[in-house]
Design a binder for these strands. Sequence first.
DNA 1: CGCCATTTACACCGATCGATGCAGAGATTA
DNA 2: TAATCTCTGCATCGATCGGTGTAAATGGCG
Lengths: 208, 208
Amino acid sequence: MTERRKSAGLPDKRRAIVAGALTLFARDGYTRAGLDAIAAEAGVSNRTIYNHFSDKAELFQTVIQESTQRVADTMVDIIDRHLSKVVDLETDLVDFGLAWLSLLTSDLAPHFALIRQIHAEVEHIPPAALTFWQDSGPGRTRRELAERLRRVAERGELAIDDPARAAGHLMLLISADNLTDRAALQDEDAVRAMVTAGVRTFLYGYKR
Amino acid sequence: MTERRKSAGLPDKRRAIVAGALTLFARDGYTRAGLDAIAAEAGVSNRTIYNHFSDKAELFQTVIQESTQRVADTMVDIIDRHLSKVVDLETDLVDFGLAWLSLLTSDLAPHFALIRQIHAEVEHIPPAALTFWQDSGPGRTRRELAERLRRVAERGELAIDDPARAAGHLMLLISADNLTDRAALQDEDAVRAMVTAGVRTFLYGYKR
DNA sequence: CGCCATTTACACCGATCGATGCAGAGATTA
DNA sequence: TAATCTCTGCATCGATCGGTGTAAATGGCG
């Protein structure tokens, strides 16, 4: 993978650091998360972190990039799996939405807390890093979803003039208010009802 | 208004502190915002802050409460102004959405940055304070909007079985991706197009 | 004027934090 | 074995921060 200098020494230390940093950055935010706590979480010496990253900021950016990469991969997978062959549109969209929402309570959950940290720290993150994240994360999944919707529309099942906007609307309607009402994510029936309602609003809004 | 102890002394000091704290909390977040910086922003001595608030945490909660109160008042005003008497549903909803979005670039803008801070700090805020904010802010506006939509539905212009959910959908569709694509808020035509598209998706999803 | 509450500047404390230096332990490769 | 690299623990530095004490200054009100 990432070619390593020479011999041994750093087998998974770097991975452990990034994983631990994700955990703490997600929960505590950039400023609150101390490097000592990150080192402890990663089971690594404080000093070792500076063998792999020059800076706390660089570590933060690395965490963002790697977590975004992994989550976007998973999301694209979900899109492809549910929307490549559409049989019954509403059923497939609801299943897609349920798979989508299941990420929020999966082992990828810390990522979404990290996203909230990014939104909060937006004034203190280099614009280049922001646009990179935007493009490789939400932008990528949105393009992928838009392309799937465009194909469905081509077959005449939906009337969509702006697939990107439609993709945005669908993602919003599926996620609904998971930010304000996170407790509801525990109730499976409530999740299904929320997703179904969102899909129907989307569907009847775009139905041919 | 809020009855003050006795005589003079604290005319607007407290207001200045809360206003300055809002500015800095919104931009820098709870941890990064220092009390010295807040005092400077408010044109007040560091020590004076502790004459009005026992704690940084208490100051933060006060800022949240007062800002939420004011913004919610404004939002309820907008709802009432645009949706009390509905003439042409789409036109009125679009106008409502434009007024709604205009808040994001108004002098109330710092509030929405503060909201992002709340979302990020959600693990470090007393649950009671969270539910209070949730209920008096987003919850209140949502209930108000839901009530308006319910009345419109009663007159037969919309088919809504769950007004609260419909209100949530409408707010989402109007705001669209203002979080990810904040640059678009500067372009008035783009904003109108976004709002119109959101309203139409909502409208055709709920139209009778 | 004189009482009283508030404000202010300044000094200070203890704690935390990011970051560095260093010396030694461990492991791998030539 | 010797050289090289990483990891580790520890000590430390400088800076920042939340919060307090204090004494002087301010200004309204009797």
